[in-house]
């Protein structure tokens, strides 16, 4: 319990890491609910990795362009944010466009993007040793050094995303559930689709920068997938997913701190164990 007291202490050295984990834990599942409902789970797996490739490209750009001086501090941060946001949004809008045209093999495209972006990130960072040391930690799920500005950026973006999702939930749900009905009701379906993709893209790009792709993926998808079979309505589904994400984020951080594990893999294994328990419980309850 001493370790718990330490973590909860406002002067705790890694307090920003705790806060940023909690923010991602509460906010990502709310966005993930829409990924699950729209049956875009594969995209939830691939986008954080693609976002990471954007970060890696931005950080190693100076090497590829022949300027061997490194980018530092605020410039590095800005480049990483730009790389993450541009890659995520370009991918999500590109895939949505191709899907609406109804051509090709969607899962094939997403799978290819995932594996290529993972390999690309590693190759890019291997040529950029200074960036590699810090960012490789993040890619592995180590949340250690979170600056105040990172924490503020994450808090502001996530508050904005959650606020917009909650405020316009009826419209987002209508367009997701019955697109044709929405058209007959003269709703601007394209606008609402763009809105939801923007929110998904923003959440993933900011979460990847602060907690890394592994935790982002886990918090986006695992809480909604665990909660769905037990939820009685859409509100319960969203709220319980968010609460589970937040609680798992805190519990994961605590276990990782006590056992000296990396936070990301601890969070993912914890959520994976909960998923297994939920699977067994729903089988026993006959909900499978």
């Amino acid at each position: 319990m001493e370790s718990l007291r330490e973590i909860l202490d406002p002067d705790f050295l890694l307090r920003n890491s705790v806060y940023v984990s909690l923010i991602a834990g509460f906010a990502c599942p709310l966005v993930g609910v829409f990924l699950v409902l729209r049956r875009m789970v594969f995209l939830g797996v691939a986008l954080p990795q693609i976002s990471s490739a954007g970060v890696a490209l931005a950080l190693s750009m100076h090497v590829w362009s022949g300027h061997f001086g490194n980018v530092h501090g605020d410039n590095e941060r800005l480049a990483a944010v730009a790389g993450s946001v541009i890659f995520t949004l370009a991918t999500i809008f590109g895939l949505a466009f191709l899907e609406r045209r109804g051509r090709g093999f969607v899962e094939g495209r997403i799978g290819t993007l995932y594996v290529v972006s993972l390999a690309g990130s590693l190759l890019l960072l291997s040529q950029c040793p200074q960036a590699e040391s810090g960012w490789m930690d993040l890619f592995k799920g180590q949340i250690i050094a979170v600056s105040n500005s990172d924490l503020q950026l994450t808090a502001v973006v996530m508050a904005l995303v959650v606020g917009v999702l909650v405020f316009f939930r009826r419209e987002f749900l209508l367009v997701s559930f019955d697109r044709e009905m929405a058209v007959t009701l003269k709703k601007n379906v394209m606008l609402w689709d763009v809105g939801i993709y923007l929110l998904i893209g923003l959440t993933i790009s900011i979460a990847v920068l602060t907690v890394g792709p592994l935790i982002t993926f886990a918090f986006l998808l695992l809480p909604p997938l665990i909660v769905h079979p037990f939820a009685r309505n859409m509100t319960q589904f969203a709220v319980a997913s968010s609460v589970l994400g937040g609680v798992a984020a805190f519990a994961g951080f605590w276990i990782a701190y006590v056992k000296d594990y990396p936070v990301g893999p601890t969070d993912v294994v914890l959520l994976g164990a909960l998923y297994l328990v939920a699977f067994v419980v729903k089988k026993v309850m006959g909900k499978g």
């Binding site: 409902l37 009826r170 749900l173 559930f177 009905m181 929405a182 589904f237």
Partner: peptide
């Protein structure tokens, strides 16, 4: 899609969205 956890009333309420 049956993945949506709407009640019958919630589905009917979509009719007034316009």
């Amino acid at each position: 899609d049956p993945i949506y956890l709407f009640s019958g009333r919630e589905v009917a309420e979509m009719g007034v969205c316009a």
